[in-house]
Design a protein around this nucleic acid. Structure first.
Length: 272
DNA sequence: GAAAGTGTTGAAAG
DNA sequence: TCTTTCAACACTTT
């Protein structure tokens, strides 16, 4: 259930294990060829086998492995996890794919809801078309935010969840950002004041960076039996805190649904 | 035991 | 064109 900070944490963890290593082959597991979105398993192997991983990085919520002839991209969606190796304790029925490296190490893609996908792209035009600016990129600036919000009549929460508007935010961090900025999640984008736009501009990278510093919020399995847990969960102020007291004003936090997503907010801090 | 809920995304419908 | 709804899936909670 990874958002930008969780994906970045995965990238950080795997960088030393994958960088400059060569892919031997990839397999789909448990009779789930759909895990490879862009190619059949045999076609994908023709592209990636014997290719060296020259860079591992993140764009939005995609993990990207640069190869000499293209990019192997992994999207974890709701429940995807990457795991180094396997043990007898593993429930392998949720493994959907396997990356075999020349050095014999095995990276498993574990995904109990099976929404996660692996893609191979010659270039990243498709991703760049689908994804808006990175929250840490200079192109995500006041002018971009103001211009886009001013012409949107929809609600701010779904806007921030829209990856084409800004890449990387998901349900947890949108709730956290809106709480910090004191913006009600159903506020119309074009009704947000300049001061609140400025708050959004600084809170978005700030909250994401802080979460990255703590390896994200949610549990991420990097190796079998080792349930690596993001430590940012301790610093959440609003997400999952319904019926608890707002840390700012002590009002009881409410949970509502906004465009079908569970949404937490403080009725006093985030007036509509 | 049935139904709703879960951190994502894109296709389809409005 | 823009915004909302729903399905893809499997497991847990109500």
């Amino acid at each position: 259930m990874p958002e930008l900070p969780e994906v970045q944490s995965v990238v950080n963890y795997f960088k030393p294990l994958l960088l400059n290593e060569t892919i031997h082959s990839v397999n789909h597991l448990n009779d789930y060829p759909k895990v490879f979105e862009t190619h059949t398993t045999s076609e994908l192997n023709k592209h990636v086998s014997n290719k060296k991983i020259t860079r591992i990085w993140r764009r939005g919520k995609y993990i990207i492995l640069n190869l000499s002839n293209g990019h192997l991209c992994i999207h974890l969606r709701m429940t995807g996890q990457l795991q180094v190796g396997s043990s007898l304790n593993d429930n392998t029925k949720h493994f959907t794919a396997l990356i075999n490296l020349k050095n014999k190490s095995k990276i498993y893609f574990k995904d109990y809801r099976k929404f996660g996908r692996i893609y191979f792209f010659k270039n990243l035009d498709i991703l760049n078309y689908k994804l808006g600016p990175e929250p840490f990129d200079p192109s995500f600036n006041y002018k971009y935010l103001k211009n886009n919000l001013n012409k949107s009549r929809g609600m701010i929460k779904p806007k921030l969840l829209n990856q084409k508007f800004i890449a990387g935010l998901g349900n947890i961090y949108v709730d956290e950002v809106l709480w910090k900025c004191r913006v009600h999640p159903i506020t119309r984008c074009d009704k947000i004041s300049a001061i609140k736009i400025k708050r959004l501009l600084s809170a978005i990278p700030e909250i994401l960076q802080k979460s990255i510093d703590f390896n994200g919020t949610t549990i991420i399995n990097f190796s079998p039996g080792n349930k690596t847990k993001g430590e940012f969960a301790k610093y959440l102020n609003i997400f999952g805190k319904q019926n608890q007291h707002c840390s700012h004003c002590k009002t009881i936090i409410k949970k509502i649904f906004v465009s079908q997503r569970g949404t937490h907010f403080c009725p006093k801090c985030q007036k509509y």
